[in-house]
């Protein structure tokens, strides 16, 4: 079964909940609605010809600062391509009148320009695709990388998640989702229901904030220093001023 067929299968079974697919270097990504995410996962796990029984990882992505589609750039690229096409025409007209020595030079130039035109068109098309993509309404994407140990398939399932949304836990399908969901809860603040033991695992339990969100500063915040001060053991030296967070 090829990637297209898997996509077709999902499209047929979930209809509108299926939001599209992408492929890069053989990696298949499908997007689904959050409401039917759990159903999709269960379908992928239990379908006899797919059997995605292994969950390498799951994670979340914060799309809040993802670059906006570059419509201006696209337009300039298209203009460039048009200008070059015109130049090709000019050159071709010159070619008819030119002598032998000049003709070869012109031919080379035309070939070069043609290549450039193709490139520019490709790039503008890429940008066009991005621009046509639906504008995001929700902040996060939740990502499940699935794998089948019986068949040679890998697939990535994504769903958009807002800050207030509660995702249904996948621990009943793959037990290994438990620790990853804890990590997502810890680092992004996305909550899960039906999770047996949802807690912060990497940060302290009373930590405020979610470090992997894009609005969390890389060097930490002032509150973090205050937190550390209150949690230092008795008698331990406080951190000197110059090492404090900005």
């Amino acid at each position: 079964m090829k990637n297209d067929e898997i996509v077709g299968l999902l499209k047929g079974n979930f209809g509108e909940a299926f939001r599209g697919s992408e492929e890069l270097s053989g990696d298949l990504t499908v997007k689904v609605d959050l409401d039917r995410l759990h159903e999709v996962l269960q379908f992928l796990r239990s379908h006899p010809s797919l059997e995605f029984d292994y969950l390498p990882f799951m994670t979340a992505i914060d799309y809040s600062v993802y670059p906006k589609p570059k419509t201006k750039e696209m337009e300039t690229k298209l203009k460039e391509a048009k200008a070059k096409e015109e130049k090709i025409k000019e050159n071709e007209e010159k070619l008819k009148e030119a002598k032998e020595e000049e003709a070869e030079k012109l031919k080379e130039e035309i070939a070069r320009l043609k290549e450039e035109v193709v490139k520019a068109k490709e790039e503008s098309e890429k940008l066009k695709k991005e621009a046509e993509r639906e504008e995001r309404k929700k902040r996060f994407d939740i990502v499940y990388q699935l794998r089948s140990t019986k068949h040679p398939y890998d697939i990535r399932v994504k769903a958009e998640v807002g800050e207030e949304d509660i995702v249904e836990s996948a621990t009943d399908i793959w037990n290994s989702a438990g620790c990853d969901e804890c990590e997502i809860y810890d680092m992004f603040g996305i909550k899960f229901k039906n999770h047996p033991d949802l807690r912060r695992i990497l940060m302290p339990e009373d930590w405020v904030g979610h470090p992997y969100r894009k609005d969390y500063p890389l060097k930490g915040r002032k509150e973090d220093d205050e937190y550390l001060d209150t949690h230092l053991p008795e008698g331990q030296l406080k951190r000197p001023e110059h090492t404090r967070m900005p």
Partner: peptide, 20 residues
């Protein structure tokens, strides 16, 4: 880099180390 997303897992001594 090209726009997009990939996952690659390699067989490490301790198990599968992957980068998404």
């Amino acid at each position: 880099m090209p726009v997009g997303e990939i996952y690659f897992g390699a067989e490490n001594p301790k198990g599968e180390l992957g980068f998404y």
